[in-house]
Design a protein around this nucleic acid. Sequence first.
DNA 1: ATTCTTGCAAACCATTTGCACAAGG
DNA 2: CCTTGTGCAAATGGTTTGCAAGAAT
Lengths: 158, 158
Amino acid sequence: MANKSTNAIVKQIFSSYLEKRGHRKTPERFSILEEIYSIRGHFDVETLFLYMKDKNYRVSRATLYNTIELLLDCNLVKRHQFGKSVAQFEKSYMCGQHDHLIDTETGKVVEFCDPRIHEIIETACEMHGFNFSYHSLYIYGKFEDDVSSGQESDDQGS
Amino acid sequence: MANKSTNAIVKQIFSSYLEKRGHRKTPERFSILEEIYSIRGHFDVETLFLYMKDKNYRVSRATLYNTIELLLDCNLVKRHQFGKSVAQFEKSYMCGQHDHLIDTETGKVVEFCDPRIHEIIETACEMHGFNFSYHSLYIYGKFEDDVSSGQESDDQGS
DNA sequence: ATTCTTGCAAACCATTTGCACAAGG
DNA sequence: CCTTGTGCAAATGGTTTGCAAGAAT
């Protein structure tokens, strides 16, 4: 895992973004970025809030929402809305494009990747004069071997 | 548009579903089903509420939510969560499987269909021992020819 | 008759907003 | 210094829930 260099690059991207937009480079923003990039899978704002509070950061929920908005804008974070519940987020730099299998009973989420999705996207965009920005494909259903009845699980190929 | 027969079939499906689950066949439930199936594209609960109030139905928001839950359960309605805003719904019987192009600036939504999506789904399900139930593919971006800067637009082939 | 549904209004709760203080530029 | 960002707490608003009256079975 090349986490050290990834973190440096990600901070650089965020820094450039803030500069370009005339936003200030506050320590809170970089702390939040760092903590988000230390999280393995998906997370929601409340979880992140408690996680950071536990680490003795003093960030408010408002700042989390605000900063995540910025991170979404510069594509360092992706937002998901599995099921009907709260918004889920995940880091998105160097994580490989992937989609999600969602167990409608347990809530378990597994990632997968299939490059053929791009052919579909290209065709649809051509047919409708659409400039693609990003996509999300969610497949809902049920896992057969529900051994690990856990909440969540990642499956990214390195 | 074979709306007349479609409506009859849809009511039959709902009726059977209610019976099987031991739910009562109230006039409100069938009114809501009928009104939903008379709506062209996507809608949110508030819009449906006002729409029905306008037609002098006396249904509460609570009943709308409750009934939509039942309709989701028997697959007569599909839920979407475009962007970050409120839940959107659409009728799903005999509307053909389709996916969505979403303009991130105007909110315009256009539907498209590409059967190749099923190959991707099949592969992913096989690889992860997953029983597919339904999917949603959202492609976000921007339309090139934004002549109709409207809110929403449908594109279903007959 | 009994139990499920409904309508209404209050409760919920994730997210947003207002404000005074703090701090980046 | 000036303006933006932050923490806190209150406000917001879509959705859910509690309850008494009404209707399906």
